[in-house]
Structure formats: structure tokens, C-alpha cells
Design a protein around this nucleic acid. Structure first.
Lengths: 245, 245
DNA sequence: CAAATAGTGTCTGTTAGACACTATGGC
DNA sequence: GCCATAGTGTCTAACAGACACTATTTG
């Protein structure tokens, strides 16, 4: 089927996609994990994912399909981006599997995880995985760490935070995204003006309001910007990891 | 050989690595391209790359091997990082090939490209490829664009610029890296202090000097920093692309 | 009323960018 | 001497962070 002009034939490899799906629940930064029902790593937690369906399926399409199958989420309404390829020959004890990892960001949803065909899915606190209190299968810890750092960094320079919010949101809700993902407290007043100064980040939607506890807040929706100028910087600039090969 | 607990078997795919090797030659920002000697895309320019050697070779190892085979460069002394996976099912007319792309940065070397086994390798000006005056094979234009944007962005937040320089360098040489990659003119005096203020970016090496045209300059080497605080920002902040699936 | 959140005003220390100026080499 | 590059000083407008203050809701 495959026609190469060389006498030698390159090795064929199985290709999987893995998803790091991040969200905010309550005031917690969370990630979707499934509990593996089969070997290897039976009983461990793992990132949702799976193999390519057939050799006409694109890797991005496979990611969208897994997002739907495992988390019942519609990738067309979500932020999703590729993290990278993880290709250590030993990463899967069953044989050679190259995984392409994706980062997805979902708005905080009330339901746990409805309509999945995975055995057991849950929104685990990101902090518990980072601290090693939840053990992940395969090299998923590596993928997870890269995803968290990517998300934290992108909050600074891009409007990614709005992907954690519903279609409309208040500036207070947006601030709680930053606080949960970065794990810091931000000054409400300075944040308030900073996000409005970044051109195209958020745009007011009508003069609608929304009642909660205190004074009702203005509603906004995501603006057209693809990068934030000026950026919102983390209080202490933590290290940007170099990435993996 | 491969043992899955499922009756269905996932499709196997060929895995390639492609390299975007960037450097500065003279005052020009350049990329290493080879001219294809065989179909498909015979006669077109392409990024150096190739298939995995065998199913025990890691993808990072394959990238280092190609770097050596095609550009005669030693990846252990170079900056190299993964860009991402490119997995469109139609990207190679011969069949299903998933490519993992790498970005490498080499110091400016006097020789063209010695000791390669590629038919015809040359350092093409990045600008000519961006402007479409050089046509690339496969989806290499897509990979190339991502690589250039990645390099431009990383000059802001990381010490990547030092990877374009020799072991020791002057601040003027470092500035010419920024000017070539970003395609802008920077104020020499402000640049001079800005790079020194970023802790761990560059460290003075002896009080050695180096003669050229004007007053001899102090020599520096790369410091231990992995991120620049504060960052060096581009004069006009161009858009950060969202990435591909 | 108190408590809570939203939103505005203002001060202060730092910084980015502009650019005058000095220093030190080759020719 | 002139030219080119290296390196220092300094001004100004903008900005980040701190925080006092007002506004508007629930209970």
C-alpha cells in the first residue's frame, strides 16, 4: 500500500491521542481523569484518550472524537490545542505507541461527567496530581505537567482564561480563573482595570447584570484578541520548562 | 507482537521527524533546506528529516540523528526542542505519515553545510520562505511558519537568543540576533542595559575583549536562566498564533 | 444595620524608550 | 583628524502595585 523509493521499510507505529481537559469547579482547578479498568496500569488514574480509529482519521479529529466519547464535550465550542508528541519507545509496556497530547479547556459545568463510556471519570484537583497524591498511568504525569505549565503561561499572554468561563461572565469570575490556575490571590481592583486595558480581551455585553452576593456586576464576553497587550503577569514568575524531545 | 485487550486493531502509521534548523549568517536569519532529488515533490525545497530507523528509536533520538546526518550538527551542543506533531492524513501523497517536527537553533557557522549526505543543502533566508518565494514540499510551509513564530516568541521570554551565538559573544552580536529574527532595529543603548538587567541571561567572561571596527566590547557567555525576567518585548507585538490540531 | 462584592480615584516607585554624551578602537 | 562601535547618564511619560474610598446588592 505504501510506496517508498527505498528498499528499506520504516517501522510502523501505533498512534494514540491523550487529552488533558482542564476546568474550574467551585474555586478549584481540575482535570478530567479516568480510572483504568484493564491492564496495564489497571486501577491507576489516566488521561482520557485512545488510538486512531482508522488511517484516514486526522489526529486533531481523533482528539475531538475522544473529547466527545470520553467527556461528552463538543470540541467545536471549546478551546483545544496540541501539546506535543510523546514518543518514548518504552512509554507503553504493550509495545510502540506514539501519543499526541492535546490540551482542552472547558467552562465549569455543574454535572460531574455525564454520558461518557469510560468506566469511571472524575474531575480531580490539579493540585493533588501535581503533588503526587494521585498517580497517573504511562507517562501521563509528564504530559499533565506540560499541560498545566502551558495553561498557566498562556493565561499571561493570551485570552485563554475566557475559555474557562461561560459565554458571558463577570470580571470577578474571570479573576477567580486566574487565581485558581495560578494558585495566587490577585488584587481585585487592579485586576479589574488591567483586563479592561488589554485591547480586545473582553467586551461588555449589553448593560446586563447578574445577582450574587454583593453589588451586581457587568457582564462581558470574550473579545477578538488572540494575544494580550499588555500581558497579565504572574506575581512571581515561575520557570518556563524547556520542553521535551 | 503488539498485545491489545481489544479485538479491533488500531491502524499502524509511519512516523517521521522533520527539522527546522535556524541560524544567523551575516546579518540574515536563515533556515536549512534541502532540495529533493526524488518524487514526490522532486525539485522542491524541503525541511531535512526522515523516518524512524527502527521501533526502538525514540523520536528525540531520531531528531538528533537527522541533525547529524543532514546538517552535520551535534545536537548535544545545540538548542533543540519539539515543535509538535503534524498528522493530516493527506500530508504525504505516498500514504499515512505522521511527522514530529523539531526546532533547532545553531550558531552562525562559516561553512555552508559540510559533510551531509543530502543531495543539496543550503541556508535559505527565512524572509524568502515567509514571502513564498521559496516553495516547500508537503506541509513544510506550515511547520516552518510555526517554527519561526516559536523562535520569535521565545526570544522574548527565554534566553534562546544565546543559542544563535558562539560560546562567547558581545552584546552587539546578541542584539543583531534579535534584530535579524524579529526583523526590527533596536536601540543599542537600551538593549545594552536591558539584557544585563535580566538576571542570569548573560554573564561576563573574564575581562576579555574582541576587536572589530570600533571600541572593543566585553565578552559574555550564556547564563543559567531559563526564562527572562523582565522579558525583552518586541516593538510591535505581533499575533501569537493559536497553533494547529 | 453588617457583610460582601463591584467599581473608581490616587499615590508612589519603577520602568521603557528616547537620546545626549563619553570612551576606545581602526583608518 | 574621522568614523564606528561600546558603554553611561538622564529625562519623561507610562505603568504596576498598594490601598482609600464609593456604590449596590443580600440578609
Amino acid at each position: 500500500m505504501f510506496q517508498l523509493n527505498e528498499p528499506w521499510v520504516p517501522p510502523a507505529v501505533l498512534v494514540a491521542v491523550d487529552l488533558v481537559i482542564l476546568t474550574i469547579r467551585g474555586n478549584d482547578f481540575r482535570v478530567l481523569l479516568i480510572e483504568r479498568g484493564i491492564e496495564p496500569f489497571k486501577g491507576h488514574h489516566a488521561l482520557p484518550g485512545g488510538f486512531l480509529n482508522n488511517d484516514r482519521e486526522g489526529i486533531g479529529d481523533a482528539a475531538l472524537r475522544e473529547l466527545r466519547e470520553e467527556a461528552n464535550l463538543d470540541g467545536r465550542t471549546l478551546h483545544i490545542e496540541q501539546l506535543g508528541a510523546y514518543g518514548d519507545p518504552e512509554r507503553d509496556p504493550r509495545g510502540r505507541v506514539l501519543s499526541v497530547a492535546y490540551l482542552a479547556v472547558a467552562p465549569g459545568l455543574p454535572e460531574p461527567v455525564a454520558g461518557t463510556d469510560a468506566s469511571n471519570a472524575e474531575w480531580a484537583p490539579v493540585r493533588e496530581v501535581l503533588e503526587g497524591r494521585v498517580q497517573l498511568a504511562f507517562d501521563h504525569r509528564l504530559i499533565f505537567d506540560d499541560a498545566v505549565e502551558r495553561a498557566r503561561a498562556k493565561l499571561e499572554y493570551t485570552p485563554l482564561a475566557t475559555a474557562f468561563c461561560a459565554q458571558t461572565f463577570t470580571i470577578g469570575q474571570l479573576r477567580r480563573v486566574y487565581e485558581a490556575v495560578w494558585g495566587v490571590d490577585l488584587d481585585e481592583r487592579n485586576f479589574y482595570r488591567k483586563v479592561q486595558r488589554a485591547a480586545g480581551f473582553i467586551v461588555p455585553v449589553g448593560s446586563a447584570r447578574q445577582a450574587g452576593k454583593g453589588r451586581p456586576a457587568r457582564l462581558f464576553r470574550a473579545g477578538p484578541a488572540t494575544s494580550l497587550q499588555p500581558p497579565l503577569t504572574r506575581p512571581e514568575h515561575s520557570v518556563v520548562p524547556g520542553g521535551h524531545l
